[in-house]
């Protein structure tokens, strides 16, 4: 039992690495994608829109397989499994984050931009100090949803053979002819998401100082 828990903690560590690395890259990339989607240049906005449609319109598991195997057929070699997982997750989640950002940015009243312009703020200052702080507050609930989904999506990494928490649990279940490890994994996921959801609650409360 102790050994099983050790293995599962190791798997959890891998899951968490996927989780944090995905957030680290997908959160900023999503902002860039949102900017592209809202671009006034038709070519840029439709290209980015096409990318978002593919990312949201096909299963993540398929994208994962594509990212891992496509380079093999084209270049004769693949990235290592873990890198492929991170790339696939980042480009998938950036698309979802982008749409959340876009909704938030477009919900900021035009008057905020006009006031910024009359006061002489640069575009960069307006975006970083006037628009984004208000966007962050508005998108927190939607972001919470997405991040919770990401915790559970890390389980898909096993498709290309990365030994994250769920794969470890399944292996143990097969070895011991028991479903118990799977249920324990369930508890692990639940605890991780409880932490995520508490953290979001806390951030939302912190941002509650204004309306």
């Amino acid at each position: 039992m102790g050994k099983l828990l050790m293995l599962m903690l190791e798997g959890t560590f891998t899951s968490l690495r996927i989780f944090f690395l995905t957030l680290l890259f997908a959160l900023p990339l999503g902002l860039l994608v949102a900017k592209g989607r809202m671009s006034r240049h038709r070519i840029i906005s439709s290209l980015v829109n096409g990318y978002i449609m593919i990312m949201r319109g096909t299963p993540l598991i398929l994208q994962l397989i594509f990212v891992y195997f496509a380079p093999y057929y084209i270049f004769g070699s693949s990235a290592d499994r873990f890198t492929a997982v991170i790339i696939a997750y980042v480009i998938n989640y950036a698309a979802y984050f982008a749409e959340i950002y876009r909704g938030g940015i477009q919900s900021i009243p035009q008057g905020q931009l006009e006031a910024s312009s009359v006061l002489g703020f640069s575009k960069v200052h307006t975006f970083s100090h006037i628009v984004m702080p208000q966007v962050v507050k508005r998108i927190m609930p939607a972001m919470g949803n997405e991040v919770i989904t990401l915790v559970k999506d890390t389980a898909l990494a096993q498709t290309i053979g990365v030994a994250e928490l769920f794969r470890v649990a399944q292996n143990a279940a097969a070895r011991e002819f028991s479903t118990m490890p799977i249920f324990i994994a369930g508890v692990f996921y639940f605890v991780m998401n409880a932490i995520v959801s508490k953290s979001f609650d806390r951030i939302e409360r912190k941002l509650d100082y204004y309306r």
Partner: peptide, 30 residues
């Protein structure tokens, strides 16, 4: 353009800034 100030019908204050910061932000950064 800074020679002309504008007061809007709907105020357009920055809701995430305190009153004092609404007044100092442009002075400091512009």
């Amino acid at each position: 353009r800074l020679r002309v100030g504008l007061v809007f019908q709907n105020f357009n204050l920055f809701p995430h800034f305190s009153v004092i910061r609404n007044l100092t932000e442009a002075q400091i950064h512009v």
